[in-house]
Amino acid sequence: ATNIVGKVKWYNSTKNAGFIEQDNGGKDVFVHKSAVDAAGLHSLEEGQDVIFDLEEKQGKAYAVNLRIK
């Protein structure tokens, strides 16, 4: 899926990971530091509006192509 709108639920820069809550009510999506880095960002803030694509690896959904809304 592409161009999904959501809000950062939480992001821990020590653990280099967090979750994004989908505005469409879907399951929360894992976001890794690699996606944050690829977006040219240093970190994510709780409640921040984002747009992202979903990629599945080994049955788990990940946020990729992250951008700030």
Rank of each mutant, 00 (worst) to 15 (best):
T14N: 12
K9N: 02
V64Q: 04
H42P: 12
V5Q: 13
T14D: 11
K33N: 04
F19H: 04
Q48K: 05
I68C: 07
G25W: 06
G59T: 04
L66H: 01
V31Y: 03
T14I: 12
A17N: 08
V64T: 10
W10I: 05
Q58V: 08
A35H: 05
A61C: 13
K7R: 13
R67S: 04
K60W: 11
D28G: 09
E45T: 13
Y62L: 06
N3Q: 07
Q22I: 13
H42F: 12
N12C: 12
Q48A: 09
E55H: 11
R67N: 03
E56V: 15
A35F: 04
Q22H: 08
G47N: 06
F52R: 00
D23C: 15
D28K: 09
D23S: 15
A39P: 01
G26T: 07
K9V: 05
E46H: 14
G26W: 07
N3S: 08
Q48G: 04
A35G: 03
V64D: 02
K60C: 11
D53G: 02
D28L: 14
N3R: 07
V8Q: 00
T2D: 06
H42C: 14
G18Q: 01
A63W: 01
A39C: 04
N16F: 10
G26C: 09
K27W: 08
N3M: 07
G47D: 04
G59P: 01
I51Y: 08
D28W: 14
A35Q: 09
G47Y: 04
G6Y: 02
L66D: 00
H32P: 07
D53R: 03
E45I: 14
V8K: 00
N12Q: 07
G18I: 04
G47R: 05
A38R: 10
L44R: 00
I68S: 06
I68Q: 05
L41P: 02
G18M: 05
L41Q: 05
Q22Y: 15
D53V: 03
D37V: 15
K9C: 05
G6P: 00
G26A: 10
Y62Q: 10
N12T: 06
N3E: 07
S34N: 10
E21Y: 11
L41F: 10
A1L: 13
Q22S: 09
N65A: 04
V64F: 05
A61R: 14
E55G: 06
I4C: 11
S13Q: 11
W10F: 09
Y11W: 13
D53T: 04
H32R: 07
K27D: 10
I51L: 10
V8P: 00
G18P: 01
F52H: 00
E46T: 15
V8F: 07
N65D: 02
G59E: 05
L54C: 08
N3L: 05
G25D: 07
I20N: 00
S13F: 11
A38P: 02
A35R: 03
A61Y: 15
G26F: 08
D49T: 15
R67H: 05
K7M: 05
V64M: 06
F52Q: 00
V64N: 04
I51V: 11
Q48W: 14
D37C: 14
F19N: 03
Y62K: 07
V29G: 01
A17E: 10
L54Y: 06
G18K: 01
S43C: 13
G6I: 03
I20E: 01
A38M: 09
E46G: 12
D49A: 15
F30D: 02
K57D: 08
K57W: 13
V50A: 02
H42E: 12
I4Y: 07
K7L: 04
Y62E: 06
K69S: 11
D49F: 15
G59M: 05
V31T: 02
N16P: 03
G18V: 03
V36S: 02
K7S: 05
A17L: 14
G47Q: 04
T14A: 13
T14S: 13
G18A: 03
V8M: 03
W10D: 02
G40E: 05
G40K: 07
A63K: 01
E55V: 14
D23N: 14
D23V: 15
I20F: 04
A63R: 01
E46I: 15
S34R: 11
I20K: 00
N65M: 03
I68F: 10
G47A: 05
A38V: 07
V31R: 00
V50P: 00
N24E: 08
I20R: 01
G40L: 06
Q48E: 08
V29R: 02
G25T: 07
K69I: 14
V5C: 14
E55I: 14
A61G: 08
G59R: 05
F30N: 03
G25V: 05
E56P: 03
D53E: 04
L54R: 06
S43R: 12
N65R: 08
L41M: 09
V5E: 12
Q58T: 08
L54V: 13
L66T: 00
K27Y: 09
V8D: 00
L41W: 11
L54I: 15
